[in-house]
Design a protein around this nucleic acid. Sequence first.
DNA 1: CAAATTGTTCGCAAATTTACGAACGATATG
DNA 2: CATATCGTTCGTAAATTTGCGAACAATTTG
Lengths: 107, 107
Amino acid sequence: MNKEYTAEQEQIARFAKAMGHPARMAILEFLAKQECCFFGDIHEELPIAKATVSQHLKELKDAGLIQGEIETPKVKYCINRENWETASKLFAKFFGQCAWGKKTCCG
Amino acid sequence: MNKEYTAEQEQIARFAKAMGHPARMAILEFLAKQECCFFGDIHEELPIAKATVSQHLKELKDAGLIQGEIETPKVKYCINRENWETASKLFAKFFGQCAWGKKTCCG
DNA sequence: CAAATTGTTCGCAAATTTACGAACGATATG
DNA sequence: CATATCGTTCGTAAATTTGCGAACAATTTG
């Protein structure tokens, strides 16, 4: 029972947690593929109620992976590119740190 | 309320979920850096009780990211390299799929 | 055999997550 | 003004997660 967690561990865990549900992965993939889109488009893609979609979007927004913007009467969502890049690098670094040689992994 | 999730979305979500806690990230980093080690070594690294460590290890094992092996009287844990590689590729693919040009992201 | 070491499992409590329908606010339309 | 559309928020229920200490099993040591 010693050390605390590093800020980087907390950060990547936050990103990972946000990605830790199929609905949220589906949302992220959908957004990543097409610049931006509206809530309704996302809802159509998913097998869950709109209230639940809204909740998942909030979590992704809180994690910093997406951002939303009101475009009356709709709401437009898109990837938060800056944080997406941050996450991308964090995960790449994480998976690249293995100590057993680059041949069998991370290649 | 339409489509279901793809197998790949489910898989990456499973990996991400397992990584979605700082303690589990710390465990993975610790293991990735040093081939293998014993339960006690992992426990020493973390600010949580052994029962909780054991639980986190079980989740990582269930997700396929690590594997354990009894080496009486200790238990040796290490990264599951095959699945680590699978995960590495899945995440790389995921973050690389953005549609807004490679210059501003994923580079 | 008694005692110590190592880690898992059990039982429990508190917090969080997931999901839904209903109600709601805001704006546009008839 | 009444209606329809769009999406969030509220309230609730069920399931899962997180964490701990105590008990436990298996082996080794005295």
